[in-house]
Amino acid sequence: MTALRTLAGAWRWVLALWLGEVAIAAAFAFALRTHVAAALSDFALPDDRLLYAAAEFAGAHPQLVSGAIVGLLLSGLLGGVVWAVLAPLVIARLADGPQSAAALGGRWLGSLGGVIATTAWHALGRGLVLMGLASALAGMPGAVSAVALPLVWGLGTFALDLSRAQVVLHGARGTAPRTAAMAWLHAIKRPKLLALALALQAAQWLVLFAGLAAVVQGTGGAVAIVRSGALVAVALGSLRLLAAISAGPLPMAAEPDDAA
């Protein structure tokens, strides 16, 4: 309940984050739509066989297909970077309530480097863990991977939240890889918090999946459904961050002499 109240108090922040996401996604969609329309020129689909037309179009314009993939990856990269840069602000605001711009700015400058560094370590670590897991599961039924990979992804996300909160709120050294590695251990050692974080992530995906289903089914107002879903997902993500914040200071063994 406290978490929900905290979140309600920070609604402007949630809204801003959501608007940022929607802006990036809409810009990407606009670019693709414009390119497709330009490639079609004065022509339209000859009938309502959309899948055939899409396949024919993709065959005739492979550069637009690869462009779309690159655009999607760049959107993701941009979103990831923007989020890493904003994370110290959001964490400070969520943890300690409204503050003066100067105070927030000071905390932001103080922890930005650490947050970006620990984010980079996490990106590397999660990539390695997922690749290792995927190759270990290669011979197993697809259902095993379908459960295990999202679970480990979700664990990694929560561990990243923990690391960032430790860097911003408790002065952990973000540049140290151990700050990232220890966060995985702490995430596993707090099964209740982890379960909450995983549940919140699952809810995020479900909401967006519903939006995807609306788009696929051609439901009227599908884009509005997707965008609203993204807003709910940002709120759920902020709750997940609050869960990580609620873990309090954790022994990150950031000090060199603490190494064992």
Binding site: I24, R33, A222, G237
Partner: peptide, 22 residues
Amino acid sequence: LSQPLGQAAETAALLVLTGVGP
């Protein structure tokens, strides 16, 4: 074609952004 592909693109981007974002 451009409208449905645009919708698909926006949805895909929001899925990716949720994956890397808050």
